[in-house]
Design a protein around this nucleic acid. Structure first.
Lengths: 236, 236
DNA sequence: AAGTGGTCTAGACCACATC
DNA sequence: ATGTGGTCTAGACCACTTG
């Protein structure tokens, strides 16, 4: 077999990350000092230093000179213009993705939704409501409408096994996407599903997706502001 | 004189970045090897190595083990969120843009701001607070810090006549921009300036802008959620 | 075979935090 | 006064690419 040689500093990183992600070292906890880690792990201080610097630049820990190294506060991140799969995003942070299907049914389009699809009121639409979890913490309340002609079997899909995003991608490639980012207060139902404190706002993403010149799906994604943000970094 | 102590590896980074940005080292050119730089700059190899690793992780160079270090190709990226001038945006909607300069002064960098600039605490920075209006309705609370070396006359500019955005653009083209979008509750001062109802959240945009490998300005833009959103529409 | 980056060490000095 | 992270050095071994 390949039996690669893994750099020491990466093993140190992994070791520390594991302890953080297992919850043994909670947010805000002070990590052992560099010198302590040198003793414990029998590596040189430069190696520990590099591992910790890496973890800091990746946002897992925060270092304060003269004071110590601390487990960082988690803030889920997402790229605004990229259409990403929430499950992949959670997993890319080394966390577990979970979800609960609150509702999945066939409905008549309410006026506001019909307008967003540009279809007559009372048209038939599929409607799904799903809550997504990152390591058993709710991070997204997803409410979606889908044009039945576009995805006839949507109503029968198992969205605990596949995300709505993946399912929609399998139907057809999107041609055009509109995205709107807002802040807002969740209603009582959403607040409860997301286990948010009263008075805490949501970061909201509204999407419309076109295929063949028709809106085929709209979604409203609500996230607790305290643990979710969009970020991007670009060269010009 | 302040005469800060700047880390050696940062001086090495700056030296190399200058050569790249002056065009002396074109895209794809191979840089001197680590050992050559050790000779030329009279520093240890570990210091050169760290500088080059940093530059690689920032995307300025590409390193190929066994082969060499090369100036990276610039890639055109589509903007996730466009950097727009608030005044132009308001005018494009056919409204009148107004603004009020709440504060414009010379300050010592607080710890959190110093960290965002990656400069020593207590360094001198310019600090401005401006409220923007759309047809006499407040829409943005702008708090900005600026590196004095980058814009020495910032403190004397008239920001009722020109936006901070325009002013910064006149100094130099930015090379890299980080943008973070959050939702949050405004503090009492901001709520009052923006004439917001109690309990109404803000849509917040945090920005950092790099020139010459240094953060030259950071800004926090807070907008009333009820009248402000980001939107985009793209073909795929 | 020679050169390159990738990693690792042991020891050092410093500025800053905290007690 | 002690401990912390931040930096720097001189030297070493390695795997890989190149001529």
């Amino acid at each position: 077999m390949s039996e690669q040689h893994i750099p020491l500093y990466q093993m140190v990183k992994r070791h520390i990350l594991d302890l953080i992600q297992n919850g043994e070292w909670q947010e805000g906890k002070r990590l052992p000092s560099e010198n302590e880690l040198v003793q414990d792990l029998s590596v040189s201080r430069m190696t520990v230093n590099r591992a910790l610097r890496d973890l800091a630049s990746e946002g897992h820990v925060q270092r304060i000179s003269g004071s110590g190294t601390f487990v960082a506060e988690k803030k889920a991140q997402s790229h605004p213009l990229e259409i990403r799969n929430i499950a992949e995003e959670v997993r890319s942070r080394g966390h577990l993705h979970g979800c609960e299907v609150i509702g999945l049914e066939d409905v008549r389009a309410p006026a506001d939704i019909a307008m967003r699809f540009d279809i007559p009121r009372q048209s038939r639409l599929y409607h799904s409501i799903i809550v997504h979890f990152e390591s058993s913490k709710p991070i997204q309340f997803e409410e979606r409408y889908v044009l039945p002609e576009f995805a006839p079997e949507y109503i029968n899909a198992d969205f605990t096994a596949i995300t709505t995003y993946q399912y929609m991608m399998e139907q057809d490639a999107f041609e055009e996407v509109e995205q709107i980012v807002q802040a807002g207060m969740p209603d009582e139902r959403v607040r409860s599903y997301l286990q948010m404190d009263a008075g805490e706002p949501c970061l909201i993403l509204l999407r419309r997706t076109w295929v063949g010149g028709r809106v085929v799906t709209t979604s409203q994604l609500q996230h607790p502001a305290s643990i979710f943000q969009f970020s991007s970094r670009n060269r010009y």
